[in-house]
C-alpha cells in the first residue's frame, strides 16, 4: 500500500516536473517561460528531498530556483528595456526534437543496462574527517581541490561579467539601479527579511558540519539577504574597485589556499587534513568561504556596472 503510494507520488512529481519544464521550453512569452522555470526548480527541490538528498534539495531550491530565477527575471527586464524581447518561433523543430529524443532514449537504455558501480567505503575516512555530514566532508576534505577551484571559478565568472561593462559606465554602480516604492511590498519585506535571512544563513553553515546545510546553501541565503537589502534601497550597490567588497570576494578562496598550504607544514600535504586538525580547519574554511560565496553570488545576479538612466527596474 505505502509502496504503491510512493510510486504514485513519484509518478505525479515526474509528470509535474516534465510539464513545467515543457511549459518553460515551449510556452508562449519569455516572462511566462521564466516563471515556469522557477516553479520547475522548486518542484525539483521537493524531488531531491524525496530522494533523501537534503543538501542537494536546499542547493537546488536556493540556487537553481531562487537565484537563477531572480537572474532570469532581471534579464527579462533588461531585454525589455533594450527592446529586445522578440521571440521568433522555433525553427528546425523536427531535427531538434530528434536530437533531444535520441539523447533521452540513450539515457533510458543506460539506466536499465549499466551495472551498479563499486561503492567507495567512506566509514573509515568519515571517522577522521571531524564532521558528521558526509556531504560536507566530501566537499571540504576528501575532494577539497574541487571546491577550492569552484570558488575560483565563481570569481572568474564575476570578472568576466564585469569585463562586459561599457567604458563610459565602468565607474557607475553595479547593476541596473533599484527603486523600491516607499511603503510598497518590497520596502516592507526588505526590512523584515534580512534579519531572518541572516540568522538562517549563518545557522545553515554552522549546522552544515553535522546536519543538512553547508557553505553553499548558507552563503546563497546570505546572498539573497544582500540582494533584498539592495532592491529595497537599504544598501547601495557598490562600484567596481570598492576595497571592502573586493576583500570579501577574495577572502574565502584566500583562506582556503592558505589553509591548504598550512596543511603541508603540519604534516599532511596540500589540502590534506590530519584528523586532529580536521574539524577546526573545516569550519574555518567554511566560514571564510561563506562570506565570499554570499558576496560573489549576489554580485553575479546584480550584473556589470550600468549607468542609471532614471528608469525603474
Amino acid at each position: 500500500m505505502t509502496l504503491a503510494l510512493d510510486l504514485g507520488l513519484d509518478l505525479a512529481f515526474g509528470a509535474l516536473i516534465l510539464a513545467t519544464a515543457l511549459a518553460a521550453v515551449a510556452g508562449q512569452g519569455l516572462f511566462r517561460a521564466v516563471v515556469f522555470f522557477i516553479t520547475y526548480g522548486l518542484l525539483l527541490a521537493l524531488v531531491w528531498a524525496r530522494l533523501g538528498a537534503y543538501d542537494v534539495a536546499l542547493a537546488e531550491g536556493v540556487i537553481g530556483a531562487g537565484l537563477t530565477g531572480v537572474l532570469l527575471l532581471m534579464a527579462q527586464g533588461r531585454l525589455r528595456r533594450a527592446d529586445a524581447l522578440a521571440d521568433p518561433p522555433a525553427r528546425g523543430k523536427l531535427a531538434a526534437a530528434l536530437a533531444g529524443a535520441s539523447v533521452t532514449a540513450a539515457l533510458v537504455w543506460a539506466w536499465f543496462t549499466l551495472p551498479l558501480p563499486q561503492r567507495i567505503d567512506l566509514d573509515a575516512p568519515m571517522a577522521a574527517s571531524g564532521v558528521e555530514n558526509p556531504v560536507t566532508a566530501v566537499l571540504l576534505n576528501f575532494r577539497a581541490w574541487d571546491t577550492l577551484l569552484e570558488s575560483i571559478v565563481l570569481l572568474a565568472a564575476l570578472v568576466g561579467l564585469w569585463m562586459l561593462a561599457r567604458d563610459a559606465e565602468w565607474r557607475a554602480p553595479l547593476g541596473p539601479g533599484f527603486h523600491a516604492r516607499a511603503g510598497g511590498v518590497l520596502s516592507v519585506f526588505g526590512r523584515l527579511l534580512p534579519p531572518v535571512g541572516l540568522i538562517y544563513g549563518v545557522w545553515l553553515v554552522w549546522a552544515g558540519a553535522d546536519q543538512t546545510g553547508g557553505a553553499f546553501q548558507g552563503g546563497t541565503v546570505l546572498a539573497a539577504v544582500i540582494l533584498v537589502a539592495m532592491m529595497a534601497g537599504l544598501a547601495r550597490a557598490p562600484r567596481v574597485g570598492a576595497p571592502a567588497w573586493h576583500a570579501a570576494l577574495a577572502f574565502g578562496p584566500g583562506v582556503f589556499l592558505l589553509a591548504g598550504i598550512a596543511m603541508i607544514a603540519v604534516g599532511g600535504g596540500f589540502l590534506t587534513l590530519p584528523p586532529e586538525f580536521a574539524k577546526p580547519v573545516t569550519v574555518t574554511i567554511e566560514a571564510a568561504l561563506t562570506l565570499s560565496i554570499a558576496v560573489t553570488l549576489a554580485l553575479l545576479v546584480v550584473g556589470p556596472p550600468e549607468q542609471q538612466n532614471g528608469g525603474g527596474t
Binding site: 515526474g14 516536473i17 519544464a21 521550453v25 523543430k93 531538434a96 539523447v103
Partner: peptide, 9 residues
C-alpha cells in the same frame, strides 16, 4: 532523462 531531451530541444 526526459528533462535532458527537453533542454536539448
Amino acid at each position: 532523462a526526459g528533462l535532458i531531451g527537453l533542454g536539448i530541444y
